[in-house]
Write a protein that binds this DNA or RNA. Structure first.
Lengths: 184, 184
DNA sequence: GTCTATAGATCGATAGAC
DNA sequence: GTCTATCGATCTATAGAC
């Protein structure tokens, strides 16, 4: 299970998984070391500022992935309906059909929200803005588009919470299908 | 039901606030003691099993409140539309218009989900079931009612996440208004 | 009942050998 | 670059004075 890595970037997926599963405070250096296959010394070699730098790097990676695979495609001016459909596909894959929680959502609810307020705010604001742009491009009024975009992003986050609580990934699937219909 | 001393019950609101704000792992006995005004000795006198018993008691209190103020009224057979409207009113008050997170939702996303799987599952399953019953009573087909109930409960949870992330309670208000419309 | 003192474990972070 | 050893702080939980 532990993964041996000689580059800082190689450790990020394992670090992300621990932060997602245990939150910031619950992600101990022991767990982070076990997941990456690195000792504390190595972790501090790659991330001199410790856990805070590890999470910042993970959030940067998450943001880059969503920017490239979700946000930017929504802002491509041709075929907004197709771009919105692609968003739902990527998001469903990313959250493994509701089996994986959203790290940014976890941080938003947690006690370290203030510490990472900027990346958390940026992630969701960018998502809502990009979807609003696509919906507007698809013909909706700007006010309707903004309201619907907020509804969809919130609905996805809520579907993750409910699917985890009920331990039923189909809850996530049903919610995604409903939200997808609403953007037609 | 065992007798609960006045002092123990009086400590529950303060304990609940600490668990909501810091999660289970982040709620230290120091914070719990400071919030309740009790020393560690007193806390262990009222809750011999420590934090686990404190959270269990808090979850029992939350469940009782929602059962009395939200779930049971939804199952009153007369005027389901009014009962659903009352649900939104009580929920908006309870979550202080999006300024207060949902403790059960926080637990569902956290690493102690398995430890408290039963109360977390019960809370959301009961909420969805009660709302489904009211929507059915209001004239919807049982399949439509179940799907809409899931959408509404998930939408409320997602609105809490998004409102916290964007630090904007109006996001919660707008989401609640939209969900309220959808149940007409 | 409520407090202080403290045990025993674990935390983040550092130092130094190799 | 990776490891082990270890520090000081903090954690849960217990013991005992009052």
């Amino acid at each position: 299970m532990p993964k041996i890595s000689t580059e800082r970037a190689d450790a990020l997926p394992a670090l992300a998984e621990v932060f997602r599963e245990h939150g910031y405070g619950g992600a101990s250096l022991f767990l982070l070391g076990k997941a990456t296959g690195l000792g504390k010394g190595s972790l501090y070699h790659f991330f001199p500022n410790g856990k805070e730098e590890m999470l910042a790097a993970v959030l940067g990676e998450v943001d880059s992935w969503f920017e490239a695979n979700v946000f930017a495609p929504l802002c491509g001016k041709q075929d907004p309906a197709r771009a919105i459909g692609a968003m739902f596909d990527r998001v469903d894959e990313y959250f493994r059909s509701g089996r994986q929680v959203c790290l940014v959502g976890v941080l938003a609810l947690g006690d370290v929200r203030d510490r990472f307020a900027d990346p958390v705010h940026s992630y969701f604001a960018r998502w809502v803005a990009a979807l609003t742009e696509a919906l507007t491009e698809a013909g909706q009024s700007s006010t309707d588009a903004a309201a619907l975009a907020e509804e969809v992003v919130a609905g996805i986050q809520g579907a993750i919470v409910l699917a985890r609580a009920l331990d039923d990934p189909e809850v996530f699937g049903r919610a995604m299908a409903k939200l997808r219909e609403r953007t037609f």
